[in-house]
């Protein structure tokens, strides 16, 4: 049975300001969903809330994986249940080597009951695995010895996110603008990388403004977010349409959400 990520009437506030106002979404393992929407509509907020960021508080509604309510779980517990977020802005961790970090992370994920200091994934098999994954993503193996995201270019950071995803093999992956700020070569590498990794074992939510990532990873569903709600859902052609024609028509069809969004955008400036 394929797993199900189910989001029901989700309301999320940041610093007491309501941002998400009732999001409903179901993603099955093996499916690809695109999430689009203008700036400030709440896409990243949804991504953080799903991953369990402590500053994004769920005021009502639920997040479930296979019927288990994970709304109150810490980020690490969710990760162990198969949740993964590729960050829009990956965080720099000085002095922590990529390889050490990933080895620790996959050990926790693959062996959730391990005692501290025990049960680390074997060094030799780990090296082999990370090396082949890096090669697939066209990454210099030297990166494994570098400090996590420290001094990385935008493209290198995004590739590092995909590498982590490849190593952690999550059930549900959310990619928050993994393709933005990259040159076209880098977008291609990341898109192909994702295409290789996704499959029947992974449900993917792709947050994007661009078409390239979706070309390589055609979505079965496209959702449009506006003013903290998902206002429309369609198939891949909706994504094409939005790319070609923008959000004017959507705003017209959903004036209330559009007003909320305009307010949020104004507040953000």
């Amino acid at each position: 049975m394929s797993s199900l990520l189910k989001i029901t009437d989700l309301h999320v506030s940041v610093a007491d300001t309501p941002i998400l106002k009732g999001v409903n979404l179901e993603i099955r393992q093996g499916e690809i969903h695109a999430l689009m929407g203008p700036n400030g509509s709440g896409k990243s907020t949804l991504a953080y809330a799903l991953a369990g960021h402590p500053n994004y508080s769920v005021t009502s509604g639920t997040i479930e994986i296979d019927g288990v309510n994970i709304t109150e779980l810490e980020a690490d517990e969710r990760a162990r249940l198969g949740m993964f977020l590729a960050f829009q802005y990956p965080v720099v961790i000085p002095g922590v080597k990529v390889a050490d970090f990933i080895r620790h992370a996959i050990s926790n994920i693959r062996n959730p009951d391990r005692k501290e200091g025990e049960g680390l994934v074997g060094m030799r098999e780990f090296r082999k695995e990370i090396k082949s994954r890096m090669e697939e993503l066209g990454m210099d193996v030297e990166f494994a010895r570098r400090y996590l995201n420290d001094g990385f270019s935008g493209g290198e950071k995004k590739r590092m996110e995909i590498l982590q995803m490849a190593m952690l093999q999550p059930k549900f992956a959310i990619l928050d603008e993994t393709d933005s700020g990259l040159d076209s070569d880098a977008v291609r590498v990341v898109s192909e990388g994702l295409a290789k990794l996704s499959g029947p074992e992974m449900g993917v939510l792709i947050i994007t403004h661009h078409e390239r990532l979706l070309e390589f990873n055609p979505p079965q569903y496209t959702h449009v977010m506006l003013g903290g709600r998902i206002v429309e859902t369609g198939d891949a052609s909706l994504a094409h349409d939005l790319h070609a024609n923008g959000y004017a028509a959507i705003r017209e069809r959903h004036p209330e959400a559009a007003a909320d969004n305009a307010q949020a955008e104004a507040a953000a400036v």
Partner: peptide, 11 residues
């Protein structure tokens, strides 16, 4: 930083 690492399964 904490959230980033925890989202990868570290306590």
């Amino acid at each position: 930083q904490l959230f980033y690492l925890m989202s990868r399964g570290l306590t």
